[in-house]
Simulated scan of single mutants.
Amino acid sequence: MSWWGKLAGGAFGFMVGGPIGALLGAVLGHNLDKGLKGLSDEERLPPGDQERVQTAFFTTTFSVMGAIAKADGRVSRDEIALANSVMAEMDLNEEMRRTAINLFNQGKSADFPLDEVLNQFRRECHRRNTLIQMFIEIQLQAAYADGSLHKAEEQLLLHICKQLGIPEFAFRRLEKMIRAEAGFSGRGGGGRQAGAKPSGPTLEDAYAILNVSSDASNAEVKQAYRRLLSQHHPDKLVSKGLPEEMMKMAAQKTHEIRQAYERVKEARGI
């Protein structure tokens, strides 16, 4: 049974407590902490269990997305559209979609416990860096939904990265990648535009997506390509705790990486 199926069915053994559990419990109208206390230690699944991480990822993704959308002082139509497009890509059922919207709204509230949620999310991920990186990529797409990264959004994202143990140079690399992807993937600054058709990456975009310079050797380009494919492999990410519903997003990432590599190969004649 999926993480959501167990949650909806009242199987609290894998669930998280703390601020993430309180946040999810508030939007679902459940007392998750009470459910946890009713179980013996033998009945609980190990910390970091896949379903537990998937639940934390889903909850943190949409609530933090709301916080970032509010960072520049207002939530734009593009930012709401981006959140809706993520939900559409995940093909959420009505109950899950309603939960995601409520989490987004919780993140916009003045009393949203951002640091507490991030700290618990980092613990639940158990240093799974590729999973945390995917989380940041989604948040960057949200930040660029209105076409630009506002200063307040940038500062908040840097703070989020610091809380999650991601150095600034890694954030800048991901930011560059997301900007490049937006240039050719049919996204308008991070949000998908209805009817927009991908035109294929420019050579500059392709190098940015692969995170290599134009003077990198063919071997370095190939190595970067293989590393990125491995990091974004949908099955691998799900095994680490990405919700199954986000597999389509990971698959889109790998498609864009392949497009970028083909563009570089074409330019180099390899």
Rank of each mutant, 00 (worst) to 15 (best):
S2Q: 09
W3L: 01
G13P: 02
G17R: 00
A26F: 03
L32W: 04
G38P: 15
E43C: 05
E43W: 06
L45S: 05
P46H: 15
P46D: 15
V64L: 06
V64T: 07
M65V: 08
M65R: 08
K70M: 10
N93K: 14
M96E: 13
A100G: 09
I101T: 14
K108Q: 15
A110Q: 13
P113W: 00
E116L: 10
V117G: 04
L118E: 11
Q120M: 10
F121Y: 12
R123A: 09
R123L: 12
R127E: 14
Q133L: 04
M134V: 06
F135H: 13
Q139N: 13
Y144I: 00
H150Q: 15
K151N: 12
L157G: 00
H159A: 01
I160E: 03
G165Y: 08
E168T: 15
F171A: 10
R172Y: 07
R173S: 11
I178L: 06
R179Q: 13
A180C: 09
S185G: 14
G186K: 05
G186R: 11
K197G: 06
P201Y: 02
P201C: 00
E204W: 00
A206E: 00
N211P: 00
A219S: 14
Q223A: 14
Q231T: 06
H232M: 09
H233P: 03
P234T: 07
L237D: 07
G241K: 01
K248E: 08
M249Q: 08
Q252N: 11
T254S: 05
A260G: 09
E262R: 09
K265P: 05
